[in-house]
Design a protein around this nucleic acid. Structure first.
Lengths: 328, 328
DNA sequence: CTGAAAGCGCTTACAG
DNA sequence: CTGAAAGCGCTTACAG
C-alpha cells in the first residue's frame, strides 16, 4: 500500500503538497497538480481514510438504529437512509436492537469511541430523560417519534391525524366498536395514534373503552390471542386498527384459519403501507407512510447538523401520510 | 474529551501503562492497574477507536453488500449478520446495491481506503473474473452464490438440490408443464436452481422447454406479464416455481385479481420461506432457506479469515433447505 | 514492571 | 505556491 509520503517522493514534492492536491486546494500550481495526479494514478494510490478521519477528528460515519429489519416498514426506512447517504461522503452503520435483545448501548458506544459522528433513532423506546441526555452529548435525530418539549430534530408522519383518519374511515362505514391492536413497545408515535383514535371515537359520541386496545408481540399466536381477547369482551367488535401491516397480516391469517372468531368480517385498517398491504388477500386498507422519505429526511437533517448548517426553528418535521382504501 | 495522556497524567503513570491497562496486559502491577482504572472511571474516559484502529492497521469493520432490503429474504440475512457481529468487537456496514442503481464500487472503496477489513457479497452478480481479482486484494466471503473453480469461501443452500426438490413435488402432484419465474439478474444460485429444475423435468421424461423460463422485475405488472407470456405459449401450464416469495406473492395477487389468466389454479412453489409465505392467502408452499444462519455463517467465515484462523479445505458451505408444503 | 520514543498516514498553521 | 514540522490519539518494541 502506497502512502502520501510515497507519492510525494515519486512526484518530487512534499507530503503537504500531495495532501493539497488530494483535497483540491486551488493554491496548487497546475503543473504540480498534474504531476502529482499522474503519480497517484500510476501507483493506484488510495488515501487511508482512517488516518484522514483521525486527523480531522471526524469519522464521517453516522449510525441509524432501528427496531428490526424483519418488518418491511423499517427496511423501507433503511433504504431511504442508504440513498440519502450515498454521495454525501458519509457512511451509515445501520443497526437493529431486535427489540432490545441487542443493546442500543452498543451503538451509542460507537459515538463515544469516535467511530461515529451522529445518530438517528428510529422508533426507539428511550425515555425522554435518556434522550435529552444523549442529545446533549451527541448529534441526534429522531425518526417516527417526537416529543413536543424536547429540542431534538424529528421526522415522522402526523400520527395523531393518521389514526384519526383511520378511525373516521371505519366509523364512516358504520362500524361502531373499533379495536386497536398494537405491538408491545411503548412509543411516542403510538401515543399520538391513540390520541387520534380516541378523539375520533369521542366525536362519534362513543365512550372510550379501555379493553378495545390490546398489545401483542409481532407473531401469529400472540396476535390471534390479542384479537380474541378483545372479541370476548366486546361481543360486537366491528372494526380493527392494526399498528402495522405485519400485525394486520397475522390478523387476516387468523381470520382465514378460523383461529380468530369474530361475528362478521371486521373492517380492518393497518399502518405502514408496505408491499405486504398490496399482496395480502384481501388487500389491506392501510395508512401509508412515506418510508423511504422518512429515512431520507432523517439523514438529511442529521447531515445538516453535522455540517453546522442552520436548523429550522421548528424541530418537528411532518411528512404526509395517505389512507389507501382497499379491500379490508 | 479525555485522552490516554490525560489519564496518564492524573494517574501518575505513562501513556504506555494506561494503554497496557486498557488492553489487559497482565504484566501491569495490580496496584498500578487499579489506580489507572480508577482514573478512567473518574474521567469517564473512552478510548478513541479511530486512533487505535489506525495504529493497529485494522478498521475492525466489515461490509456486507446485498441487493436490497425490500426483499424480506435479504433482510433476514442482514439480521443474522448483525447477530453474528455483535460481541465480536467488529462493526458491520450493511449496504445495498438496489439492483445496481447504487454502485457496488462504493462499498469496495471502503476496503481500498482502509475503512473496512473484509467484504461479504450476498447474491452479487459480479463476474467470476472480477470476483477473483477482488478476492486477491481483500478478504471476501460469498453468500448465496458459489463457483466451483474459485478459491473463495461461500455459504448457501444447495440450490440445485432445492430446485430439484421443488420440481419433484410439483411433478408428484401430477403437474406436467412447470414454468419457472425468476428475477432479472443472473446469478450462480439461479444457475444451480435451473439445473435442478431441468434435471427433475428430464427424469420425468419431459423435454426442457425454453419458454417455460421467464424473467421479470420484482413488481406486480412485470410478474403478471411474465406469467401470462408463459401461459400463452404453454396452453396447459400446470405448475410454477417462483424464484422468491415476493415473486410468488405477485403471482398470487395476479391470479386473484384475474390479471393472470390460467386454465386452473396452478401448483406454485416459491423460494425463501420468509414470513410472506405464511401470511399469503393461500399460504405458499415454499423452499425455506435458513436466512438468519446464512447471514450468521457468512460473518463467521469472514471473521475467521480476518483473524487468520485456518480455513476448511472445502470452501463451499451448504446449509440445509426445507420444503414446506402449504396451500399452493 | 514501566517509561521514552517512534510511528500508524494523514492535514494544516506557519513561514518563506 | 510549497515545505518542514507538529499533531490527531493511540500502541509497542526496546531498554532498563
Amino acid at each position: 500500500m502506497s502512502s502520501v509520503k510515497e507519492v510525494a517522493k515519486r512526484a518530487g514534492v512534499s507530503s503537504a503538497t500531495v495532501s493539497r492536491v488530494l483535497n483540491n486546494d486551488p493554491a496548487v500550481k497546475p503543473e504540480t497538480r498534474n504531476k502529482v495526479l499522474h503519480i497517484i494514478r500510476e501507483l493506484n494510490y488510495k488515501p487511508n481514510l482512517m488516518a484522514k478521519n483521525l486527523r480531522k477528528q471526524s469519522s464521517k460515519t453516522i449510525v441509524m438504529v432501528l427496531p428490526t429489519m424483519a418488518n418491511p416498514f423499517f427496511a423501507g426506512i433503511a433504504r431511504g437512509a442508504q440513498a440519502a447517504i450515498s454521495e454525501s461522503g458519509y457512511n451509515v452503520i445501520i443497526g437493529t436492537t431486535e427489540f432490545d435483545k441487542l443493546q442500543l448501548g452498543t451503538y451509542i458506544n460507537l459515538l463515544n469511541t469516535n467511530l461515529a459522528d451522529g445518530l438517528i433513532l428510529v422508533s426507539s423506546n428511550m425515555s425522554k430523560e435518556a434522550l435529552l441526555k444523549l442529545s446533549k452529548q451527541h448529534p441526534v435525530v429522531l425518526c417516527n417519534e417526537y416529543y413536543d418539549d424536547l429540542d431534538i430534530q424529528s421526522v415522522s408522519i402526523d400520527n395523531r391525524q393518521a389514526a384519526y383518519d383511520a378511525a373516521r374511515e371505519l366509523l364512516a362505514r358504520g362500524y361502531r366498536n373499533i379495536g386497536f391492536v398494537t405491538g408491545t413497545r411503548e412509543s411516542s408515535s403510538l401515543l399520538g395514534r391513540m390520541s387520534g383514535y380516541r378523539q375520533a371515537l369521542q366525536e362519534a359520541g362513543m365512550a372510550f373503552n379501555e379493553h378495545l386496545v390490546v398489545k401483542a408481540k409481532s407473531n401469529y399466536e400472540q396476535v390471534v390471542e390479542a384479537v380474541n381477547s378483545i372479541a370476548e369482551k366486546e361481543k360486537s367488535l366491528e372494526g380493527l386498527i392494526a399498528n402495522s401491516d405485519m400485525l394486520a397480516s397475522y390478523i387476516l391469517k387468523g381470520i382465514k384459519e378460523g383461529d380468530i372468531r369474530l361475528p362478521g368480517r371486521p373492517g380492518l385498517i393497518s399502518f405502514d403501507g408496505t408491499f405486504l398491504s398490496e399482496v395480502m388477500n384481501p388487500a389491506l386498507t392501510t395508512v401509508a407512510q412515506p418510508m423511504y422519505d422518512l429515512g431520507y429526511a432523517s439523514v438529511g437533517l442529521l447531515l445538516q447538523k453535522l455540517r453546522n448548517r442552520p436548523e429550522t426553528a421548528d424541530k418537528r418535521h411532518f411528512l404526509p401520510h395517505r389512507l389507501i382504501v382497499r379491500e379490508t
